[in-house]
Design a protein around this nucleic acid. Structure first.
Lengths: 230, 230
DNA sequence: CAGCGTTGTCAACGGCGGTGACAGCGGATT
DNA sequence: AATCCGCTGTCACCGCCGTTGACAACGCTG
């Protein structure tokens, strides 16, 4: 029983997942359908069911691929904060680069290797930062959920039709111009408001890291503020 | 032309929106369909199209209702951080309470009053914190996007079938038990990992506020860390 | 060569968002 | 009072979706 792979097989989980990512890359909302996959692979749509139980199964496979992509070539830094930043950015980048897949996958545990590798890296960095196991666990979830939540957010915005996206982006300016007296702050700041499209993921990440750094080693001279320190 | 409202009208935008929220409240994934709305209101599904151009129009109306709900009864605090916390929590709560609606609405500008009220409140608090117009604008977007992104994340998790949700939640523990030597940190921290369901929204918010506080008034005696301060 | 499991094909199902023709009803016009 | 008109709800229908079950072709095993 040499278990030779039959050369006549047209499909495989790998080929299908790759096709899905390409499909989603080029395509607008809802590009990921069984019929589209079949079309792209020159195969009947229902053939995919020979390799994936249902769409959920397929989506989990996509998520797994994204985690692999995210961690490919990762090397830990001596600086724990730099490691955290790197991993979170990598996860966000990988998921945000495939909007449709991210939207479906971001809220799911894949329970496969790559995901646990990411968790392990984050936990290790947090432990090195001086947090205890419990704090590390909590902050790992914060950073992981943060990366995924924001990736899904970015992704679902990227999937909107172009006209809608542009209309949404310019909304504050338009409205601010109409009622200056009711919204003075908006009038004052409107021209600085970044469009929704350029999600403030990295800015928020830096703020988070700053907050973590403050918590990790309470400054000796400073007065700790109980109302702000979680 | 007294413009008397005809009493014979069965539907209205308000009635439909209310029905949608009820529908979504009790129902699992995909509960919000025109046919379901029609069924609930004892009316043909397509009658809804007399009041909303399409599903997108309907969803924007839902989002607007959620913003209204979020800000109902809001009173600003003297403490800027407390105001930020309050508004972000309110938005998150309102959206997370209606998963399906949040999922569709979180990435959209409604361009209606309630949304701009929220923006104005956040901007004002940030300006009072001492941030300039540009910083305030950037951080407003951070907090606003943060609230919506995490709400959508929570929501889409809440919408998963129960079995899937439970399986996902217990995943790290199971896996950690299987390969202690490859994932030592996971083994160490696994029992502290909060289930995905209990999203670490509030923990992250406190860290964010801590980070903002550090940025708002750089401590006189402390050495500013350029690599961590955005 | 016979048998069997794997893989792709095909026709079909019910549900989805959405459209266009049509009916009834109330208010305004004459 | 008769007529018209616009608004609202109904109905039949479209094309798309995920998914199923019967079936055919292929290659491996005995």
């Amino acid at each position: 029983m040499p278990a030779r792979r039959t050369p006549t097989v047209a499909l495989s989980r790998e080929r299908i997942v790759t096709a899905c990512l390409e499909l989603v890359e080029g395509g607008g909302p809802g590009a990921l359908t069984f019929r589209a996959i079949g079309r792209r692979l020159g195969v009947d749509a229902t053939a995919v069911y020979r390799h994936f139980r249902d769409k959920d199964d397929l989506v989990l496979a996509l998520a797994d691929r994204l985690y692999e992509e995210a961690l490919a070539g990762f090397a830990p830094s001596d600086d724990w904060a730099e490691t955290l930043r790197d991993v979170v950015l990598r996860i966000h980048r990988a998921f945000a680069g495939h909007p449709q897949a991210a939207l479906l996958a971001a809220t799911r545990s894949t329970r496969r290797e790559a995901e646990f590798r990411a968790i392990e890296i984050l936990l290790d960095a947090l432990r090195r930062a001086g947090f205890g196991p419990e704090e590390a666990a909590r902050y790992e979830r914060v950073l992981g959920d943060y990366a995924l939540a924001w990736a899904a957010f970015t992704a679902s915005f990227a999937m909107l039709p172009k006209e809608v996206r542009e209309a949404d982006a310019s909304a504050p300016l338009v409205y601010a111009a109409q009622s200056l007296e009711r919204y003075p702050r908006l009038a004052e700041c409107a021209r600085h408001l970044p469009p929704v499209a350029e999600s403030q993921f990295e800015t928020a990440l830096e703020i988070l890291l700053t907050g973590l750094r403050v918590s990790s080693r309470p400054p000796a001279g400073a007065v700790p503020d109980a109302s702000l320190t979680a």
